[in-house]
Amino acid sequence: MAEPLLKRHKASNSSSEVSEDEEVQDVLPRASLCPQRLRGIGMKLVNRINDDYLAMLRDVHRNDFYWTAMEKLPVRGQRVLDLGAGTGLLSLMAAKLGASSVLAVEESADMAAVVKTSAEHNRLQHIIDVHAGHSALLSLAEKDKADVIVSETFGVLLLQEGCLKSFIHARENLAKPGASILPAGGAQHARLLASTALRSACSALDPEMLHVNTFRDAGQVRFSLPGGFSVNSLPDACWMSDNISVLEVDFASSRPSDIPSSRHFRVQILEDGIVDAVVTSWEVWADKDRTLLLSTAADSTKGQPWGFARDAHWGQGFQVRSCRGGAAARSARLDWNQASRGTGRCCSSPCRG
């Protein structure tokens, strides 16, 4: 019988306002306000599920992307390695599609317990084995190495959560030579945006508070938590350029040394006006022919029934402009600086298009 989740689990990856030992009923004004289903569960685990996973699970387009891609590989009869398993959805897909075995690796012990419950709930515990710990600390016997690696450990920025390093370790230590990797590759995009609403939200406009603009951060890509901000929520968003691919990775072969620390692009300005921000998004593909795509670009989510879920979980990153003057021009220079930890910095000049 599946072990109930109504059991204390210590979490380590969520909000610092809640202590390690606090359970849901402990942080409410009265314990009687806590639903019975949440009693005994750590508040950090509840925060993490609500912040990171519920919207992702409702993103049916993302789910279809992985299901279709695994069906086409196929995974039937294969040993599958799921990196950063989260709630275990990709592991369940692989098992249901006929994988001979699935190893779900999840760094958080709390989330690993959720994966285990997911497998038991779907009566797939005989196929899905769960490992609590980081994949970089795992080793496998030759006979247990994977034929297929799957993962969706992407942040608002493509490489933000260290997915490339995880893929490298897995393909060199946990998989057979030539193992299939899903997604096969991805690209980080940047695009220039004009929006008076965004400009107002990122600046102090009242005369008595203008001094606060001293702290206005125009030096790095930012995003609201838990996901990015949503361009589609801006009432006056105007794209000032096309999407620019600032980096691409092949998850089967790329290494950190293949990614330039900085790149420079000449961008055509499409509209007259002031560039208020550089907006980032990413795209991954299921195979080298890019026949199946998953994207966080605002254009791809706008008007889609699953678009809100995509924006709520990943959204887009943005970097506000530090300058609004300059002569009119029909092109701008976009500089992208890639940090080793996967974050990015970008700037563009001149400010007027």
Rank of each mutant, 00 (worst) to 15 (best):
L205E: 15
V105W: 01
L182Y: 09
V60L: 13
D287F: 06
M93T: 10
K7T: 09
N213K: 11
D258C: 05
A55K: 04
A146P: 06
A11Q: 10
G317K: 12
R123Q: 07
L140E: 12
D26Y: 09
A190H: 15
L164N: 06
V46A: 08
E22F: 12
T296G: 06
D82Q: 04
V148L: 11
A109R: 03
S230A: 11
L174I: 00
V267P: 05
I259D: 07
L205K: 15
Q220E: 10
R62W: 05
K7S: 09
R266L: 05
P260C: 05
E71N: 02
V148Q: 13
S15P: 06
K44W: 01
K143V: 13
L334E: 01
G178Y: 08
G178C: 09
I269M: 03
P35M: 04
F215I: 08
I128G: 09
W67C: 10
R263Q: 11
S295V: 04
L140N: 14
E208I: 12
F308C: 15
L45F: 03
L89Q: 02
L225F: 09
V249T: 01
G353R: 01
W306K: 13
V105K: 02
E142Y: 13
I41C: 05
W67D: 05
M240H: 03
R255A: 02
D52E: 05
E20V: 09
S224V: 15
G84N: 01
L138V: 15
F215Y: 12
D287H: 01
R333S: 09
H121V: 08
E22P: 07
A252W: 03
V156M: 02
L90V: 02
A201K: 15
G219I: 02
E152M: 05
G317N: 13
A252P: 01
A136G: 15
V156F: 08
L5H: 02
P35N: 08
C346L: 03
D299G: 08
G155M: 04
